[in-house]
């Protein structure tokens, strides 16, 4: 499948940056465009890992919840159905959010949830870049 999804996303970012960008004089519009280009580049880099991340996060979160006795947990299910994965991911994260008082009071679960949060931040598929803020604005 060529161009691949990644190639199309990064190519669209290039077109916006190299073709559209130079034609823009308005600094606000230019700033918005820069944000769009950055997002397309980040998606091009990370979208292939989204499904794998959701599966991992659902299963890792389930294991923490089991430590504090939460039952009837949704399993990851079909890893190729990303929309369904997204829904199950939201459900299991909501269960964890509600269970946090119990997790905090359970030493093993407290350690496990901190490890989970750290690992999921490392595995998060859409890379983030340090926010650099708006460029200096001489007319503000």
């Amino acid at each position: 499948m060529r161009p691949t999804v990644s190639e199309q996303l990064s190519g669209a970012a290039r077109l916006l940056s190299e073709v559209v960008g130079p034609e823009i004089d308005d600094p606000y519009v230019g700033d918005v465009l820069a944000g769009v280009v950055t997002t397309l580049e980040l998606l091009a880099e990370g979208w292939t890992q989204v499904a794998a991340f959701l599966v991992w996060d659902i299963e890792a979160t389930r294991r923490v919840l089991e430590l504090v006795g939460v039952e009837d947990l949704p399993a990851a299910g079909d890893p190729l159905d990303v929309a369904a994965l997204q829904n199950r991911h939201t459900r299991v994260r909501a269960l964890l959010e509600r269970a946090m008082p119990d997790v905090g009071a359970h030493p093993e679960a407290r350690t496990a949830v901190a490890a989970l949060f750290r690992e999921r931040a490392d595995r998060y598929p859409i890379p983030t870049r340090p926010w650099r803020g708006p460029v200096a604005d001489t007319t503000r």
Binding site: V32, V36, T39, A121, Y124, I126
Partner: peptide
């Protein structure tokens, strides 16, 4: 809003460090 915000995972990492989790 005309700006796109990703999940703040870097802030989460720092917060975990700051609270000693």
């Amino acid at each position: 809003l005309d700006r796109i915000h990703q999940a703040p995972v870097r802030i989460h990492q720092l917060l975990l460090d700051q609270i000693g989790a």
